[in-house]
């Protein structure tokens, strides 16, 4: 990671947002309660995954990149895969928000301190990088998704400055970012289409991330999986012993993702 390039990006993005706010006054005071500052500092890093992957994560003790996982199975990633095309296949992904990756059933929240540990090799973007390929529409069709991504990569944890500014300038209330409500102003980045992942900060950390660490804040899994799967049981037992929050939830009629999201949002709401 080129930290200097990322820092320069951060400066430009923050300036761009200030200019945008001046040129497009909303009439709404920016973060009068100071909630944007508190939330942008304290929001957790969220990684959610399928139940089968979660079992593997509990067993191995690591979140791993797509390329490492493929290598461990003795095969290469398909060249058309989104992460390969975007050059992000060596990264572990997090959202700085509640769980937002669809079709996932279990997940982990990490404290922001994980970013400090990876300030020299991790980075952040103010959107989901994978969405650039097929989900969002870029403002300039002449620019490739990869170039667009490179222009928006910011250092961690400093990207939270941009997060604080966008929470204050673009959303009615800073909490709306967490709740997944659309910003009332689109902002200067210019992406359209897709869902809340268009404006959710993504953090990428290379290769792998240790799960059983002091950064782990909370673990979420469906009750039936927790009760039955010995790896998840052992992991939840470890969480209990270390005082890490571990939450098992009922999943009425297979609606795991919706329940995971709601349970996580209820948990994150404790921050405000």
């Amino acid at each position: 990671m080129d930290r200097r390039r990322c820092s320069a990006n951060l400066g430009k993005l923050c300036q761009g947002l200030e200019d945008y706010a001046k040129a497009n006054p909303s009439g709404i005071p920016s973060d009068p309660s100071g909630c944007a500052e508190r939330l942008s500092d304290s929001l957790y890093l969220a990684h959610s995954t399928s139940d089968a992957n979660f079992t593997r994560i509990c067993a191995s003790g690591y979140l791993v990149s797509a390329s490492r996982r493929a290598a461990s199975r003795g095969r290469a990633l398909p060249p058309q895969r989104t992460e390969v095309l975007m050059g992000t296949d060596g990264s572990v992904f997090f959202y700085v928000s509640p769980f937002r990756y669809p079709n996932t059933g279990s997940g982990l929240l990490f404290a922001g301190s994980l970013e400090l540990q990876h300030q020299n090799d991790g980075l952040a973007t103010p959107f989901d990088s994978g969405g650039l390929l097929r989900i969002f529409t870029l403002p300039n069709s002449a620019e490739s998704p990869q170039e667009f991504l490179a222009r928006h990569e910011m250092p961690i944890p400093e990207h939270r400055r941009y997060l604080r500014m966008s929470m204050g300038q673009l959303f009615h209330k800073a909490e709306d970012y967490v709740e997944g409500l659309q910003p009332h102003r689109p902002g200067p980045i210019g992406l359209t289409g897709g869902d809340y992942r268009r404006w959710t900060h993504e953090v990428r950390i290379p290769d792998r991330v240790l799960v059983r660490s002091t950064h782990l804040q909370a673990a979420f899994a469906p009750l039936a999986r927790t009760a039955r799967d010995p790896e998840i049981r052992r992991f939840f037992g470890w969480c209990a012993g270390k005082g890490v929050d571990h939450i098992a939830f009922d999943t009425p009629r297979g609606r795991e993702f919706e329940t995971l999201q709601k349970t996580c949002l209820d948990y994150v709401r404790r921050l405000y």
Binding site: S50, D51, A52, N53, T55, N103, G105, A224, R225, R228, D229, P230, R253, G254, R255, E256, F257
Partner: peptide
Amino acid sequence: YANVLTETMVPSVVP
């Protein structure tokens, strides 16, 4: 369906 199940996950309702 939008899940990948192993033997410790079945039977299961799936989307």
